[in-house]
Amino acid sequence: MKAKVYITPKKGILDPQGVAIERALPALGFEGVGGVRVGKYIELELPDGEGAGEEMDKMCHKLLANPIIEDYRFELVPD
């Protein structure tokens, strides 16, 4: 199956990229945009099976995300 992983900066953690983008948008005429947070999107394929969710959770916790400063969520999509 396929997993889609979304990684975002934890709430309350400074997101310098988001701030820089938020400041740049009005200059291009996009007014009123706020709350820009920059994260990562990861796709990967893994074997089907019961424990896939648990495995994904471990992968996220150990490698894909840095749980000290990032949150993650993922979707499992059967092939």
């Binding site: 953690i13 400074l14 310098p16 000290i68």
Partner: peptide, 13 residues
């Protein structure tokens, strides 16, 4: 979650 202890640096700022 409300209290992250890790400070994130923003060298650009």
């Amino acid at each position: 979650e409300k209290r992250p202890t890790v400070q994130v640096g923003d060298p650009f700022t």
